[in-house]
């Protein structure tokens, strides 16, 4: 298991073991299980009441703006949290740098606000 192609042999071995394990479990299940098909088993589980609607659900396309804004702030948090643990070591320069970074995002948010993105028209 050494060398360039050898490392791929490891991947292949894991793949074979994985497929084998799943086949063993599903096969064992098939060998031992009782089956008693009834219409209730095919029904959506909704705590015993009649299911409402179908499995296919759609979301309004307008939500994409909120999704974008969420991504922006999620990335913001990815930078802020590691920085918060070490900023005492880095000193005030890093605080100013981070303030510039957050300031840019804030300007973007203000821009989005001015464009009326945050209000539901």
């Amino acid at each position: 298991m050494t060398g360039y192609m050898g490392s791929y042999a490891t991947v292949l071995a894991i793949l074979v073991v994985g497929i084998g394990l799943v086949a063993l479990m599903l096969g064992g299940n098939w060998l031992l299980r009782p089956a008693r098909p009834t219409p209730e088993k095919q029904l959506t589980y909704e705590c015993g009441v009649d299911p409402v609607g179908e499995g296919w659900a759609q979301t309004h396309v307008r939500y994409y703006v909120f999704a974008y804004l969420y991504v922006v702030f999620a990335v913001d948090a990815v930078f802020l949290f590691p920085w918060a643990t070490v900023f005492a070591v880095l000193g005030w320069v890093s605080v100013i740098e981070m303030a510039i970074f957050v300031g840019f995002i804030a300007i973007g948010l203000v821009y989005a606000w001015r464009r009326g993105v945050l209000t539901w028209t």
């Binding site: 009782p34 008693r36 009834t38």
Partner: peptide
Amino acid sequence: STLGPSTLG
């Protein structure tokens, strides 16, 4: 069972 016979593996 109403959707086919009861079976045992």
